[in-house]
Design a protein around this nucleic acid. Structure first.
Lengths: 95, 95
DNA sequence: TCTATTTGGTTTATAAAATAAACTATTTTA
DNA sequence: TAAAATAGTTTATTTTATAAACCAAATAGA
């Protein structure tokens, strides 16, 4: 029984983890879609997307659908790696 | 693809999760042992044990080994159930 | 023997994070 | 054309985690 590995604090957050979990299985997803799937408020989601984006875990593209703003997110290579490492570390806790 | 289940916030914390993970596989464990396994500071561990104890997830017995204080913890039935449910919910995020 | 240091913690203060509330700009609907 | 909805962002508040300070007893060193 060894010591517990650190859990990436950026991923060890319910909402950010849900976002990453979503994004890892799709090519890209829109703000509104993520918001619905995660049950997040827009404000909270906005903040957490920023954090993931700042860390380079996701990329966020802002455009327009007609005249409404459209925020599209996708996971990056760095994000995939971080997610995989997090899941790996987490298994030590739950298996 | 359904919405994400809530993750019990009491368990979704690195240190408290590590504590529960430890306790679920042993009969009981002493403060110092848990502290070493989890790399926690005494202060932080003390606070988090209190929270788990207040929630009824663990029981904490305070006694003396010679004249030194000895804090012994074990997981409760309620704690085991909560841990299992947490792990279950978590799988939705990482599988 | 007195005085540091260590052990085994708890309590309180501070820093960081999550969340909620308020706000902006545009658009659609009644 | 006023009200409500959409798609967000920004800022404020609450909650959490962590660190620092503290306590009491025991042990170790000069």
């Amino acid at each position: 029984m060894s010591k517990f590995k650190e859990l990436d604090p950026l991923l060890h957050s319910q909402l950010r983890l849900a976002v990453m979990s979503l994004l890892i299985s799709v090519d890209s997803a829109e703000f509104v879609f993520i918001k619905e799937k995660t049950n997040a408020t827009a404000g909270n989601l906005s903040v957490q997307l920023d954090k993931l984006s700042t860390a380079g875990y996701i990329s966020v593209a802002k455009s327009f659908k007609g005249k409404k703003p459209l925020t599209t997110c996708s996971i990056t290579k760095v994000g995939i790696k971080a997610f995989e490492e997090y899941v790996n570390a987490l298994k030590q806790y739950i298996e």
